[in-house]
Amino acid sequence: MAAVAGPSWTRRRREVSTSDELLLRALHDEHGQALWRHVVSLTDGDHARAQDVVQETFLRAWRNPKVLADTSAARGWLFTVAKRIVIDEWRTSRSRHERVSAHLPEQVVPDTTEQAVDRHVVGAALSRLSSEHQAVLRECYFRGASVGEASKALGIPAGTVKSRTHYALRALRVALDEIGGVR
Protein backbone atom coordinates (compact mmCIF):
# COMPACT_ATOMS: atom_id res chain seq x y z
CA MET A 1 0.00 0.00 0.00
CA ALA A 2 2.82 2.33 0.80
CA ALA A 3 4.37 1.68 -2.61
CA VAL A 4 1.08 2.54 -4.34
CA ALA A 5 0.45 5.69 -2.24
CA GLY A 6 4.04 6.95 -2.66
CA PRO A 7 4.15 7.30 -6.46
CA SER A 8 0.58 8.63 -6.53
CA TRP A 9 1.46 11.35 -3.99
CA THR A 10 4.62 12.20 -5.94
CA ARG A 11 2.65 12.57 -9.17
CA ARG A 12 0.09 14.80 -7.49
CA ARG A 13 2.84 16.89 -5.88
CA ARG A 14 4.50 17.38 -9.28
CA GLU A 15 1.16 18.35 -10.81
CA VAL A 16 0.42 20.83 -8.05
CA SER A 17 3.97 22.13 -8.18
CA THR A 18 3.82 22.65 -11.95
CA SER A 19 0.43 24.36 -11.84
CA ASP A 20 1.53 26.48 -8.85
CA GLU A 21 4.65 27.43 -10.73
CA LEU A 22 2.61 28.50 -13.76
CA LEU A 23 0.18 30.45 -11.59
CA LEU A 24 3.02 32.11 -9.70
CA ARG A 25 4.74 32.99 -12.95
CA ALA A 26 1.52 34.52 -14.29
CA LEU A 27 1.02 36.40 -11.04
CA HIS A 28 4.55 37.75 -11.23
CA ASP A 29 4.18 38.74 -14.89
CA GLU A 30 0.93 40.56 -14.20
CA HIS A 31 1.77 42.31 -10.91
CA GLY A 32 5.56 42.11 -10.50
CA GLN A 33 6.52 45.51 -11.95
CA ALA A 34 3.78 47.42 -10.12
CA LEU A 35 4.63 45.65 -6.87
CA TRP A 36 8.33 46.44 -7.39
CA ARG A 37 7.64 50.16 -7.89
CA HIS A 38 5.38 50.24 -4.86
CA VAL A 39 7.93 48.50 -2.63
CA VAL A 40 10.77 50.77 -3.84
CA SER A 41 8.70 53.75 -2.71
CA LEU A 42 7.99 52.06 0.64
CA THR A 43 11.71 51.43 1.24
CA ASP A 44 12.77 54.99 0.37
CA GLY A 45 14.46 53.90 -2.85
CA ASP A 46 16.52 51.11 -1.29
CA HIS A 47 16.59 48.66 -4.22
CA ALA A 48 18.25 45.84 -2.28
CA ARG A 49 15.61 45.93 0.45
CA ALA A 50 12.87 46.24 -2.17
CA GLN A 51 14.14 43.10 -3.93
CA ASP A 52 14.10 41.21 -0.64
CA VAL A 53 10.55 42.37 0.14
CA VAL A 54 9.20 41.48 -3.32
CA GLN A 55 10.87 38.08 -3.18
CA GLU A 56 9.43 37.40 0.28
CA THR A 57 5.99 38.54 -0.92
CA PHE A 58 6.00 36.10 -3.84
CA LEU A 59 7.35 33.36 -1.59
CA ARG A 60 4.39 33.88 0.73
CA ALA A 61 2.05 33.82 -2.27
CA TRP A 62 3.56 30.51 -3.37
CA ARG A 63 3.03 29.12 0.15
CA ASN A 64 -0.60 30.27 0.10
CA PRO A 65 -2.41 28.37 -2.68
CA LYS A 66 -5.62 30.40 -2.21
CA VAL A 67 -3.84 33.49 -3.53
CA LEU A 68 -2.63 31.63 -6.59
CA ALA A 69 -6.12 30.31 -7.28
CA ASP A 70 -7.96 33.66 -6.92
CA THR A 71 -6.21 35.97 -9.37
CA SER A 72 -8.84 38.73 -8.97
CA ALA A 73 -7.84 39.41 -5.35
CA ALA A 74 -4.14 38.64 -5.83
CA ARG A 75 -2.98 42.21 -6.52
CA GLY A 76 -4.46 43.62 -3.32
CA TRP A 77 -3.13 40.68 -1.34
CA LEU A 78 0.39 41.13 -2.75
CA PHE A 79 0.47 44.87 -2.01
CA THR A 80 -0.87 44.34 1.50
CA VAL A 81 1.64 41.60 2.29
CA ALA A 82 4.53 43.69 0.93
CA LYS A 83 3.47 46.67 3.02
CA ARG A 84 3.25 44.51 6.15
CA ILE A 85 6.70 43.03 5.50
CA VAL A 86 8.18 46.54 5.28
CA ILE A 87 6.38 47.59 8.46
CA ASP A 88 7.57 44.45 10.28
CA GLU A 89 11.16 45.17 9.22
CA TRP A 90 10.90 48.69 10.63
CA ARG A 91 9.61 47.31 13.90
CA THR A 92 12.34 44.73 14.36
CA SER A 93 15.72 45.50 15.84
CA ARG A 94 17.32 44.96 12.42
CA SER A 95 15.87 48.25 11.23
CA ARG A 96 17.12 50.19 14.25
CA HIS A 97 20.72 50.03 13.11
CA GLU A 98 22.33 52.96 11.38
CA ARG A 99 21.41 53.48 7.77
CA VAL A 100 23.73 54.81 5.14
CA SER A 101 22.48 58.04 3.61
CA ALA A 102 23.86 60.49 1.12
CA HIS A 103 22.14 63.35 2.94
CA LEU A 104 23.43 64.69 6.23
CA PRO A 105 20.65 65.50 8.68
CA GLU A 106 22.41 68.66 9.85
CA GLN A 107 25.69 70.46 9.41
CA VAL A 108 28.28 69.82 12.10
CA VAL A 109 29.35 73.00 13.83
CA PRO A 110 32.68 72.82 15.65
CA ASP A 111 32.64 73.77 19.30
CA THR A 112 35.20 76.56 19.78
CA THR A 113 34.41 77.17 23.45
CA GLU A 114 37.33 75.10 24.69
CA GLN A 115 39.73 76.88 22.34
CA ALA A 116 38.51 80.28 23.55
CA VAL A 117 39.00 79.28 27.18
CA ASP A 118 42.49 77.91 26.40
CA ARG A 119 43.39 81.14 24.61
CA HIS A 120 42.29 83.19 27.63
CA VAL A 121 44.19 80.97 30.10
CA VAL A 122 47.39 81.04 28.02
CA GLY A 123 47.09 84.84 27.71
CA ALA A 124 46.75 85.16 31.48
CA ALA A 125 49.77 82.86 32.00
CA LEU A 126 51.84 84.83 29.43
CA SER A 127 51.12 88.08 31.26
CA ARG A 128 52.88 86.60 34.33
CA LEU A 129 56.15 86.13 32.37
CA SER A 130 58.93 88.68 32.03
CA SER A 131 58.86 90.94 28.96
CA GLU A 132 61.95 89.15 27.51
CA HIS A 133 60.26 85.75 27.80
CA GLN A 134 57.00 87.11 26.34
CA ALA A 135 58.85 88.62 23.37
CA VAL A 136 60.76 85.44 22.50
CA LEU A 137 57.61 83.28 22.76
CA ARG A 138 55.63 85.75 20.62
CA GLU A 139 58.30 85.61 17.90
CA CYS A 140 58.99 81.87 17.92
CA TYR A 141 55.55 80.39 18.65
CA PHE A 142 52.88 82.91 17.77
CA ARG A 143 54.50 84.42 14.68
CA GLY A 144 56.25 81.19 13.68
CA ALA A 145 59.70 82.77 13.27
CA SER A 146 62.81 80.62 13.16
CA VAL A 147 65.59 81.13 15.71
CA GLY A 148 67.54 83.22 13.17
CA GLU A 149 64.52 85.38 12.30
CA ALA A 150 63.66 85.89 15.99
CA SER A 151 67.31 86.80 16.65
CA LYS A 152 67.17 89.55 14.01
CA ALA A 153 63.73 90.81 15.08
CA LEU A 154 64.66 90.99 18.78
CA GLY A 155 68.26 92.12 18.22
CA ILE A 156 69.78 89.36 20.35
CA PRO A 157 72.09 86.44 19.52
CA ALA A 158 70.59 83.13 18.33
CA GLY A 159 71.92 81.30 21.41
CA THR A 160 70.10 83.78 23.65
CA VAL A 161 66.86 83.16 21.69
CA LYS A 162 67.25 79.42 22.31
CA SER A 163 67.94 79.72 26.03
CA ARG A 164 65.18 82.32 26.59
CA THR A 165 62.73 80.10 24.71
CA HIS A 166 63.67 77.16 26.92
CA TYR A 167 63.30 79.11 30.17
CA ALA A 168 60.18 80.93 28.92
CA LEU A 169 58.44 77.62 28.22
CA ARG A 170 59.36 76.34 31.68
CA ALA A 171 58.03 79.56 33.27
CA LEU A 172 54.86 79.33 31.15
CA ARG A 173 54.27 75.75 32.37
CA VAL A 174 54.62 76.90 36.00
CA ALA A 175 52.21 79.80 35.39
CA LEU A 176 49.68 77.48 33.74
CA ASP A 177 49.91 75.05 36.65
CA GLU A 178 49.30 77.92 39.11
CA ILE A 179 46.26 79.07 37.14
CA GLY A 180 45.05 75.49 36.69
CA GLY A 181 44.67 75.93 32.97
CA VAL A 182 45.55 74.15 29.75
CA ARG A 183 46.70 70.55 29.86
Rank of each mutant, 00 (worst) to 15 (best):
A2V: 00
A3P: 02
S17Y: 13
T18C: 01
D20P: 01
E21F: 07
L23N: 09
L24C: 03
A26Q: 12
A26H: 09
L27C: 14
A34L: 05
L35G: 04
L35I: 06
R37L: 12
V40E: 11
T43Y: 06
H47C: 01
A50D: 10
A50W: 05
Q51H: 15
Q51G: 15
D52G: 04
D52Y: 01
Q55Y: 00
T57H: 08
L59V: 14
A61D: 00
N64K: 11
P65V: 05
K66V: 12
L68P: 01
L68M: 10
L68S: 05
S72A: 14
S72R: 13
W77L: 07
W77C: 06
F79K: 01
F79C: 00
F79Y: 04
T80V: 11
V81S: 06
A82K: 02
I85H: 07
I87R: 15
I87Q: 14
D88F: 00
R91W: 08
R94C: 07
H97N: 08
S101D: 07
A102N: 09
E106S: 13
V109N: 05
D111R: 08
D111K: 04
E114V: 15
A116M: 07
V117D: 08
L126V: 13
S127C: 05
R128V: 02
L129R: 06
L129M: 08
S130G: 08
E132F: 08
A135W: 01
L137S: 02
G144R: 04
A145P: 00
S146W: 10
E149I: 00
K152D: 15
A153E: 11
G155R: 02
P157I: 00
T160R: 15
V161G: 02
V161R: 10
T165Y: 02
Y167M: 02
Y167I: 03
A168W: 13
A168I: 09
L169V: 13
A171M: 05
A175I: 11
I179F: 03
R183V: 14
